[in-house]
Simulated assay, not measured.
Amino acid sequence: MEDVTVAHAPLPVGPPGLDLAERARREQGATPPPAPGAARAEGAGRRAVAEDPDRFRTCFERDLDRIQHSKAFRRLAGKCQVFVAPDDDHLRTRLTHAIEVCQVAVSIARPVGLDTALTAAAATGHDCGHGPAGHASEGALSPFLDGGYHHAVYGADVVLEPLNLCAETLDAIRNHSWNRPAPTTAEGEVVAWADRIAYVCHDFEDAVAAGVVRPGDLPDAVSSVVGRDRRTQLHRFITAMVETIADTGTVALRRPEADALAAFRAFNYERIYLRPEAVRQADRAARLITALTEHHIAHPATIGADGAGLVPGEPATVAAAVRHVSGMTDRYAAAAGVALLGWDEARLPRSA
């Protein structure tokens, strides 16, 4: 495995030389069995609260349905991917990002024989723990929680907890970030790769549309390997992932495309995510989120029904305030800053 890159620890799919479920074979109904390392759906699944199995759906298919129908997933439509509350409706939100991650992940998982329902459920729900204004909320909310605020952990353990999802789905969501421990399933590892592949490609496309960068700015180390447009880039990354998994039997990406992905991500950080204006707006967002959380801790009645009976400053009140603020959309948080904090609109974060 010297010429491939893994996101976490190596997770096996099967022996090298996997039998791929290519399109022509699937059209003829001749698909190979699930890969040896694929997750197995069994009955109602391993859930915190036992349930009866569904007559028609596997446990992972039920998880996907529950996430798609959840309020947490719907709220992603109002949470930014890169640009805070943009005027351009074509720029991505966390919702469209999740949908695109799901497409990439399933396109990798299907031909190598992994469970596509588990893959889709984890990909669809992977960012449900994000607060308003994207990653800026993590730093702002971290001081209020023991161990800090990580969107992947918070999404699995708090936001999606009421859905009673399968242990494998929650694990894949909790550990999709590369700075987290390895997922326990190959499907979860595919989602980790799909997240990174999707966001570097579509964030660059959005930045071009917003006039932040130009198509020709993309380094040759990226464009010479995967091309300059999103469609070509996704196709080449997905194909390389499938071929690498088939060749090695492990969820990994061969060196040329892995190096191109790393260079792509580094370019995006330098030219898009960490450019001075973006940092300024992230700082504004963090100050707003901190101020809103502090306000709700001091005045739990402003949380709404979840704040009834809570005592200002108590641990339960802090937890309720964090949950309330983390669930806000970008526009709701901005409106709350004006209505509750008396902030002038000029202080609010804006698309940068």
Rank of each mutant, 00 (worst) to 15 (best):
H126E: 13
G216R: 07
V104P: 02
Y149Q: 06
D115H: 01
Q103K: 15
V222W: 12
P162N: 14
A123F: 08
E187K: 06
D127G: 03
I173Q: 02
A105T: 01
P219N: 10
A207Q: 03
T119Y: 08
L165F: 07
A194G: 06
A105Q: 03
A167Y: 12
D203F: 13
D87Q: 11
A198W: 02
H126L: 12
C201M: 03
N164I: 13
R180N: 05
E161Y: 03
V112S: 08
D171E: 10
P143F: 09
P181D: 07
R196I: 14
D171P: 01
A105S: 04
E187I: 09
A105R: 02
D206I: 12
E138V: 03
S223G: 11
A121C: 06
P111I: 11
R92T: 08
G188L: 13
D146E: 15
V106Q: 05
A109S: 14
S107G: 11
S107R: 13
A152Y: 01
P143V: 04
T184R: 15
I197H: 07
D220F: 08
H90N: 08
D127S: 15
P219G: 10
G131A: 13
T119M: 12
T169Y: 11
E168A: 14
E205L: 13
A192E: 02
A120E: 09
V225W: 05
C128K: 05
A210T: 01
A105D: 04
G211M: 10
A172H: 02
D87E: 15
W193P: 00
